[in-house]
Write a protein that binds this DNA or RNA. Structure first.
Lengths: 174, 174
DNA sequence: TGAAGTGTAAAACGAACGTTTTACATTCGG
DNA sequence: CCGAATGTAAAACGTTCGTTTTACACTTCA
């Protein structure tokens, strides 16, 4: 595992579990097992590091959503929640913690959410056999809701959302 | 407007707009127009202050959800989002930022989410004419999803969720 | 009249913040 | 074999953190 990968993995873990602002650079260097000099050479700074973490997470998350059915979308969410834990969307949290300052973070969040929206619309279109922007928006809301309700209702929220999505899809089918 | 109300209003505004950790006590004293001595006498400390902010917000938010129909639930959410802005649920954000430390905050969040869940279940039961825990869970997820999707999709997310909820309710009705 | 209560302004506490720097190893291709 | 490149360890930069303290002014009411 090379330096950059070690750094990004440690940073994602700490930012996700303890928050962006609350995580100091010294904890980061310790967790990543490197000096602060190396860290700054690789990452540039704290906000840039967070932006790269979000970029990696975007790749990893969207890779799981390469499916053809709405059902599979929520199955993938359930898997993710069970593997990664439920602390709410890291992108929205990063945006909220930095309040719109830190442009690199705001951009990473916007890019991810747009890619996510597009993916959901694609899956809905594939499953339904035609485009349906209204339904896609509803499915997106169910997905986002399950991800956040899971924080206090557990990962089973993904299954409840899957059932709701099936009902909506059924209603749209004729 | 007395000292405590001024303090709580300023604290809610700053915590919501810039985050809990990123908001320093000096900004708080300045925004509330009081000395730090007075602030600490009234609030006890930063975490206690956040807990009291959340308590007030819980009251204010749930008061808006005193309705009899699921439709009205999402109308109320739309109003809230348009008035207060969309930065994601302050309770979940506070929980995530403190990562489970700060017991007073964790308790305030848990209490709010349980009260919220109960309220949704009540409204669903009143609208449907009978209890339906599965449907209530789906409506809760739609609500939570609209609140968070609104951050990047705008307050219209509440209307999309309302339409989805109507479909689910219709499906449960016979 | 005087003590208690409530407020302000400002300095100070040690600790932690993000970042840079200094000084010194180690690897490795030309 | 020499000079980049890449790493470490550790101190230091000035700033800000949450909190406490000191010293003083004003009201309220027994």
């Amino acid at each position: 595992m090379d330096t950059t990968a070690r750094l990004l993995a440690a940073a994602e873990r700490l930012f996700d579990r303890h928050g962006y602002t609350a995580t100091g650079m010294d904890r980061l260097t310790e967790a990543a097992g490197m000096s602060s000099r190396t860290l700054y050479k690789h990452a540039g700074g704290k906000a840039q590091l967070m932006a790269r973490v979000l970029g990696e997470r975007d790749r990893r998350f969207l890779a799981r959503l390469e499916v053809r059915r709405v059902d599979a979308l929520f199955a993938a969410l359930g898997d993710w929640l069970r593997v990664e834990g439920s602390r709410g969307c890291l992108f929205l949290r990063a945006r909220a913690e930095t309040g719109g300052d830190a442009p690199e973070i705001a951009e990473a969040v916007a890019a991810h959410k747009e890619a996510f929206r597009r993916r959901v619309a694609e899956v809905v279109a594939a499953d339904l056999g035609r485009e349906d922007p209204e339904l896609a928006e509803q499915i997106l809301i169910l997905f986002e809701g399950a991800a956040h309700a899971a924080v206090y209702r557990g990962p089973e929220a993904a299954e409840a959302a899957r059932a709701a999505a099936a009902t909506l899809l059924q209603g749209a089918r004729r």
